[in-house]
Design a protein around this nucleic acid. Structure first.
Length: 219
DNA sequence: GCGACAG
DNA sequence: ATCTTGTCGC
């Protein structure tokens, strides 16, 4: 796979892959959701993919250990952990119906955040749920779970600020590949019956941390 | 020139 | 992301 050696090459790859980004079709009733997350150690990282069923129980898990493939640059975040994430996906028995990313999808300077990038490479429906903002402005949504406001960047609606729990800080939701914002928000709510972040993200977070601790000890 | 800036 | 103690709340 072609890999950028500097930011300019990374920008070019994003511009090229963005042409493959699709708005649909959107999965009507996804039965499985994959959560992706990465944990960092000293010059090492562990990526985890956890697949949940419709009842949000864990169906399958896959991990991969590697090194950061690119320095952290806002807007180029995907290049840092994508190789390890892709390797983890290769360890899955079944392809998930939709992938939930820890970060942004189209709420990105060039409309091609991690969720878009991963979706295009795997050609699977994706969306992003970020804890903090990368681009855009939005009014504060109402205090109730389910309330949301438009995230606007340069006059374009690129995502939403969505309240997943009453009175709790909202999350940044944006569509990735083969996805639309309304569906992404609906699925995010379905994945947050109890906590601020989706169960997919939480499960993947725990799994990649455990995997990192494992190798950090040796083995 | 000075901030902002997913994880 | 990660480095870090105590602390408030269910």
């Amino acid at each position: 796979m072609e890999w950028p050696r500097n930011p300019d090459e990374a920008f070019a790859i994003q511009d090229e892959l963005r042409l493959k980004l699709l708005d649909g079709p959107v999965p009507a009733e996804p039965l499985t959701f994959a959560g992706v997350d990465v944990a960092y150690g000293e010059d090492r990282l562990a990526a985890a993919v956890v697949v949940l069923g419709a009842d949000l129980s864990v169906r399958e898990t896959a991990v991969a250990v590697g090194e950061p493939a690119f320095p952290y640059v806002p807007g180029l975040f995907a290049f840092r952990e994508l190789p390890a994430v892709l390797e983890a996906f290769e360890g899955l028995e079944d392809k998930p119906d939709v992938i939930v990313c820890d970060g942004q999808g189209r709420a990105h300077p060039r409309r091609f955040g991690l969720a878009c990038h991963l979706g295009v490479l795997l050609d699977l429906p994706t969306f992003g749920v970020g804890k903090t903002r990368l681009v855009g402005e939005a009014d504060e949504p109402g205090e109730k779970r389910g309330e949301r406001t438009a995230l606007i960047d340069r006059g374009e609606e690129v995502g939403a600020l969505l309240r997943t729990r009453d009175g709790v800080k909202p999350v940044y939701v944006s569509a990735g590949h083969r996805m639309d914002l309304a569906t992404a928000c609906a699925l995010t709510l379905r994945l947050t019956p109890r906590y601020r972040l989706p169960e997919t993200t939480r499960a993947a977070d725990h799994t990649c941390r455990a995997a990192l601790a494992q190798v950090h000890r040796g083995g």
